[in-house]
């Protein structure tokens, strides 16, 4: 009896050590990926700036008045939507602080089967994590034994279903279309996940 308890305690220590080690590895990996992503995203953002700037100059040469009108419209649309943008950003902040990578790992990492998939889909639908945080997380989860279908459904819902941004979507698409799009995307995420599971098995 005592020996058993000792053995269990012993394996626990090994588990702990393992966890620390993979944690470090993950951090390193995530760091590298984050850097790569930054370069990647920066490149695209810079390209958008260049394209916008060139078109703006072209527009200005062609017609000053129209260009000014365009700038006014740009500002107005931005100002129009700014309250929602800011609200969404604060919600994301609070959410990501509570649903830290560790918590998400706990929620979808170990559970498998349909319940695990449902949980992954729900977490993915509610949260709004940018890709540069999500992909290192999912890569790490996969390495630590999470199922590929759970991960796939998490990624799909994360991208396609946005419960946080639904009020904004409703403003542009109306209630019915916004809810339809999101529910269809939710269902589709399962289909995509199953297909990925079959292909990558």
């Amino acid at each position: 009896m005592r020996l058993e308890a000792l053995i269990i305690a012993d394996t626990d220590i090994y588990k702990k050590a393992d966890e620390v080690e993979t944690g470090l590895e993950q951090n390193l990996c995530a760091e590298k990926l984050r850097y790569f992503r930054k370069e990647c995203m920066n490149m695209f953002a810079i390209m958008m700036y260049i394209v916008a700037f060139c078109l703006l100059i072209l527009s200005f040469i062609k017609d000053r008045k129209k260009t000014l009108l365009a700038m006014k419209k740009a500002w107005k649309s931005f100002e129009n939507i700014l309250p929602q943008f800011l609200a969404i950003i604060v919600i994301i902040g609070i959410m990501l602080a509570i649903l830290s990578p560790e918590v998400i790992s706990g929620l979808i990492g170990e559970k498998s089967g349909w319940l695990g998939m449902l949980m992954a889909a729900l977490v993915g639908s509610i949260t709004l994590i940018p890709g540069f945080v999500a992909f290192p997380l999912t890569a790490a989860l996969l390495k630590n034994g999470a199922g590929i279908m759970q991960i796939a459904v998490f990624i799909s819902t994360l991208m396609m279903v946005g419960i946080v941004s639904i009020p904004l979507e409703i403003k542009y698409f109306g209630k019915k279309a916004a809810l339809l799009r999101n529910s269809l995307a939710f269902v589709f995420s399962f289909i995509a996940a199953i297909a990925i599971g079959v292909v990558l098995r």
């Binding site: 958008m48 700036y49 078109l55 527009s59 260009t67 365009a70 700038m71 419209k73 740009a74 649309s77």
Partner: peptide, 12 residues
Amino acid sequence: PIFVLLGLLDVW
């Protein structure tokens, strides 16, 4: 740039 492009799109 997204909104600048939006404005130009709307006008031109």
